[in-house]
């Protein structure tokens, strides 16, 4: 229990620093920017209570906001992601796919499940984030393409992270 807590804490610090110092400086063809920090919410255990999920989403977003001078923008998007997570899990898994004490990781859940899971949540998060950031539906196609490209980038990074670090 304590070990798990420590593990998640380290993951939080590493992801926030990675996002603030490296990923925020990546500009593929101008404006495509991956937001890998959502991985933290994706990987929380299945048993995490929903209210805790929401709080963690909110404060994770707020951390990123503090580092990128955008109070509220990431916080709202990550809260939205945390709110959707249980519904996404219900949608793609039958009752017996989820075993107790297994975290939602690629190695436990299989590639197909994990890809669908990441695809849904990352897309929702990025669309929310980019539209809240510009705060207008003017230039809809431009914002849409920015969020889709960034989402694709993030999804690739999430999948790679599963093969590199969380192999076990």
């Amino acid at each position: 229990m304590i070990r798990d807590l420590l593990k998640y804490l380290i993951m939080l610090v590493v992801l926030v620093l990675l996002q603030a110092l490296i990923l925020n400086n990546i500009q593929f063809s101008g404006y495509v920017n991956p937001y890998l920090y959502v991985l933290f919410i994706l990987l929380l255990p299945f048993e995490t209570p929903r209210y805790l999920l929401l709080f963690m989403g909110f404060f994770l977003g707020l951390f990123i906001d503090i580092f990128s001078n955008t109070p509220g923008i990431h916080a709202s998007a990550t809260t939205f992601l945390a709110f959707l997570r249980p519904f996404a899990i219900d949608l793609i898994s039958s009752r017996d796919t989820i075993e107790v004490n297994t975290p939602p990781r690629l190695s436990f859940m299989g590639f197909g499940w994990f890809l669908r899971y990441t695809l849904m949540l990352v897309l929702a998060h990025h669309l929310f984030l980019f539209f809240v950031e510009v705060f207008t539906f003017e230039g809809f196609i431009y914002t849409l393409s920015r969020s889709l490209l960034s989402a694709a980038f993030t999804i690739v990074l999430v999948i790679i992270s599963q093969f590199l670090i969380f192999k076990e």
Binding site: F58, G61, I66, N69, G72, A75, S76, T79, F83, V132
Partner: peptide
Amino acid sequence: LFLALEVISLILIVNYNNFQRVRFLNS
């Protein structure tokens, strides 16, 4: 709870210019 947190975020976004003065929230 979700609605409450979203409202807080929205207030943060909309009142941004006031929050600039709160040093805690900027880089």
